[in-house]
């Protein structure tokens, strides 16, 4: 359990760092929105809006995870429940059937690729975002079906 406690501590540091980066990028995005040129297109606005939304989601999710992990670290039972949840054989099977964690990794990579591609070609941006949404929806569907069947 001590090993897991160290792992949780490391996760708290990582999530705190992510929150700080997201807040810094969010503040930058808010100020950069004021300097929008008059000839800016709607798609350019959509991409920057998407980036802002993504940054805010990452920040909020990281903050929530910091609070959750801190609570678990201060309570032995909550820590054990968290450990059991992560090492539960049934959940591991369900996750693997739903294509996790590979699907999450490819989704993150595709979102990064979409943001970069968005600066050059808006069609590629929409296609990649649609593909990510589709694969996440399929994975969530499979997970839901497996959870009710197993």
């Amino acid at each position: 359990m001590e090993e897991f406690r160290t792992k949780v501590n490391r996760r708290i540091i990582l999530a705190s760092g992510l929150t700080l980066v997201a807040v810094a990028l969010g503040i930058y995005a808010v100020f950069s929105l004021q300097n929008v040129p008059d000839d800016a297109t709607m798609s350019a606005g959509f991409i920057s809006g998407f980036q802002f939304g993504l940054i805010m989601s990452i920040g909020i999710l990281s903050m929530v995870s910091v609070v959750k992990l801190r609570r678990a670290l201060n309570d032995e039972i909550k820590l054990k429940v968290l450990y059991n949840k992560e090492h539960d054989e049934r959940l591991k099977t369900i996750r693997s059937k739903a294509g996790q964690p590979l699907l999450s990794i490819t989704s993150v990579l595709m979102i990064i690729a979409a943001i970069i591609a968005g600066y050059f070609n808006i069609v590629v941006f929409y296609t990649l975002v649609a593909a990510v949404l589709a694969q996440l929806a399929i994975s969530a569907g499979v997970k839901l079906v497996c959870m009710t069947k197993m």
Binding site: I77, V81, Y83, N84, K85, D88, R90, L91
Partner: peptide, 14 residues
């Protein structure tokens, strides 16, 4: 029971 045997409540139910 789940806590004692290192699993989740949902797994015990299943």
């Amino acid at each position: 029971l789940a806590l004692e045997v290192g699993t989740t409540r949902q797994t015990i139910t299943s």
